[in-house]
């Protein structure tokens, strides 16, 4: 069993998004998987099996808490009740990492359950910065902000996405979660160069990498339109971009995200194994 300190940082090895159906596989033979990520919102009930399993796993693995409902890019103030629930979860669990998205998902009292896009303007920047300041002050920890998968552009956008993220880091002191699949998806959809995006990224601020599967579609003009679905295997172009990311920024904790049509454990473990082999070739 890892010691206490090891559980409080993510190791530069593969992790997976935890699904209850894999509980016994993970306990019996986690193989290349050295840490787990949970979606914060699924563990905000008062008790029962989800929290019992989480307590059990947290004694054995470093845990990353990944929020999907805070709406950091929302125009309105952050939902104080939700922030309090996050503070409660991070308080008792003391996870190795907390991350959220550069996106919005709440409007008024409505939760829209998608990571919706933002225009990169000075007004958006000010809102996101103040929300991240509030999150970090409330949780008493540094958070990681994830680059989004986007399907369209805003005419009003003034800044490049990498510059926008760097400015957020400079103003808030937060770290970054680099989702390599999102870079591939967004670059394809925006018809830009994903390797250039990786080359300009602030790798020294990256605390975690995400890899996942996506679906393929096309827009009205027939141009390819990739959709971040987390429902299938990671494709070769994303693995190539990941290898380039490791060569550029060094070994980082790397998550295999598979949230829909969740496969049997061996399929997921094989993806983690492929990441482990690439991680072994580089140093942290």
């Amino acid at each position: 069993m890892p010691d206490q300190t090891a559980r409080h940082s993510l190791p530069p090895h593969p992790g997976v998004g935890y699904k209850a159906r894999h509980f016994s596989n993970i306990i019996d033979q986690a193989g290349p998987v050295k840490w787990l990520e949970i979606h914060a919102e699924n563990y905000m009930g008062d008790g029962g099996r989800p929290l019992a399993q989480l307590r059990h796993l947290a004694e054995r693995f470093p845990i990353s808490v990944h929020g999907v409902g805070l709406s950091i890019g929302g125009e309105a103030p952050l939902d104080r009740d939700h922030l309090a629930r996050l503070a409660h979860l991070c308080g008792w669990l003391n996870p190795a990492s907390f991350s959220e998205h550069l996106a919005w998902s709440t409007h008024g009292a409505e939760f829209l359950n998608d990571l919706l896009p933002l225009p990169y303007t000075s007004a958006t920047l000010a809102t996101v910065v103040s929300h991240i300041d509030q999150v970090q002050a409330t949780l008493g920890r540094r958070m990681l902000l994830e680059n989004p998968a986007v399907y369209l552009d805003f005419a009003e956008t003034e800044m490049d996405e990498v510059d926008f993220l760097n400015e957020i880091v400079a103003r808030t002191g937060c770290g970054l979660l680099l989702d390599v699949n999102n870079v591939h998806v967004s670059s394809t959809n925006r018809q830009t160069d994903p390797f250039d995006y990786i080359d300009r990224f602030a790798h020294d601020q990256v605390g975690e990498i995400h890899l996942g599967g996506h679906d393929q579609d096309h827009d009205d003009t027939g141009a390819p339109l990739l959709i971040d679905s987390h429902g299938c295997e990671i494709v070769d172009p994303v693995w190539e971009l990941y290898a380039h990311t490791l060569a550029t920024g060094g070994a980082k904790p790397t998550l295999i995200e598979w949230d829909n049509d969740v496969p049997d454990w061996p399929v997921l473990a094989a993806e983690a194994d492929r990441a482990a082999r690439l991680l072994q070739k580089v140093t942290a």
């Binding site: 009003e156 827009d219 009205d220």
Partner: peptide
Amino acid sequence: AGLTDPQGHPAGRRFDVY
């Protein structure tokens, strides 16, 4: 209005993803 594809055309199907 103001949501586009990379060429500046209206977003159309791209918005339907959301």
